[in-house]
């Protein structure tokens, strides 16, 4: 009995000692901490696409201001160079390398096992690995919401969808949008176009404009553009025709005030900021993180540029749909789970 008591005392003593040591170590660590270095690889749209990549860049620059990290960003101008650039960052012992967009998947898959001490974050695709975190978004939920809003604002009962690159990710937007529009009016027509099939589709405003104009001329009055920098073509078209457009990823309401119904927010900025914060405080977690309506990782934008579309009634309706999706009362079809 006495022995047991002694042992437990000894154990607890050891325990407190070690925790002290731990705390001390943590304190000295944070005192002598060098700012972490973050490499950001943007996809073809580039940091000025006012959409997907702009959001990522915004998140990273916020982190730079708030945390004093060292940030370097690179735009992938050709697909072959992504892996080389990722390796360059890793070889230069960057603490965190963030790949924006699914085009980086193969590169992360190949490079991350070679540099176990470097952390990798990947947006929009999943890669397993002890040093990789995959950041995914529930795009279909937000698309459902803006689809419903589009249907409420369509006089001709015809809404449009303009996708960037013809890939499963954007089909996910499309499916949610269609379901949302049909939930308001089952007979509504949804016209669908994609800008292209390779990554240049994210940055082809000229073609996007042609497609949008064709849709508007055929009687469509609201188009949801999920096309990265190509959305600028949609905005040119909406200015010419004075109809309505819906922006994507970043808040794009300001681009054409009064003509942008809303923007489906995909808070890539928040995701990027979060992952940098976690890495900075040494709490980087490998695995998959999903952002949805509940945590405001996905949302729709209301501000001074589009408040005229949000009457009390519309706001109430939208809020109800949103809560229903969060509560699971509305099941939004998911292209990934088809």
């Amino acid at each position: 009995m006495k022995n047991k008591f002694l042992i437990s005392v000894l154990w607890s003593f050891l325990f407190t000692l070690s925790s002290f040591a731990f705390a001390l170590q943590a304190a000295t660590n944070s005192a002598a901490k060098v700012p972490i270095r973050v490499g950001l690889i943007l996809d073809k749209g580039g940091k000025d696409d006012k959409s997907f990549n702009s959001a990522a860049y915004l998140g990273a620059t916020l982190a730079e201001k708030e945390l004093g990290i060292q940030l370097k960003y690179i735009e992938a101008t050709d697909d072959a160079a992504i892996e080389t650039m990722m390796r360059s960052f890793a070889q230069k012992k960057y603490d965190l390398v963030i790949g924006i967009g699914f085009a980086m998947t193969d590169a992360v898959k190949k490079v991350s096992p070679l540099f176990p001490e470097v952390k990798f974050a990947l947006i929009d695709a999943e890669v397993p690995g002890a040093n990789v975190t995959s950041l995914l978004f529930e795009e279909h939920q937000g698309s459902y919401l803006v689809g419903a809003l589009a249907a409420m604002n369509s006089k001709n009962k015809k809404v449009g969808f303009l996708g960037g690159m013809d890939v499963p990710l954007i089909h996910r937007f499309q499916m949610g949008y269609e379901a949302g529009a049909k939930s308001i009016d089952p007979k509504i027509a949804v016209i669908i176009n994609y800008v292209g099939v390779d990554s240049s589709a994210w940055n082809n405003p000229a073609k996007a404009k042609e497609l949008s104009l064709t849709q508007y001329r055929s009687g469509v009055d609201v188009i949801f553009g999920a096309a990265g920098a190509s959305n600028n073509g949609l905005f040119d078209a909406v200015e010419e025709t004075k109809k309505l457009a819906i922006g994507v990823d970043s808040n794009q309401n300001w681009v054409k005030p009064g003509l942008v119904l809303t923007s489906m927010l995909k808070r890539v900025d928040v995701a990027v900021l979060e992952v940098i914060k976690e890495t900075n405080s040494g709490k980087f977690k490998a695995g998959t993180v999903r952002f949805g309506l509940k945590d405001k990782g996905i949302d729709y934008a209301v501000d001074q540029y589009n408040s005229k579309f949000f009457t009390a009634e519309t706001s109430k309706k939208m809020e109800k749909i949103k809560q229903d999706i969060i509560a699971g009362k509305i099941k939004v079809p998911d292209y990934y789970k088809k």
Binding site: D79, F102, A103, T105, D106, A125, M165, D166, V167, P168, L169, G196, V197, D198, S199
Partner: peptide, 18 residues
């Protein structure tokens, strides 16, 4: 190439790259 790559017989379905 853009068209052929979309055919199910050729297309890689494991990731989203064209």
């Amino acid at each position: 190439a853009s068209w052929l790559i979309t055919l199910p017989v050729l297309r890689n379905t494991e990731n989203q790259n064209p």
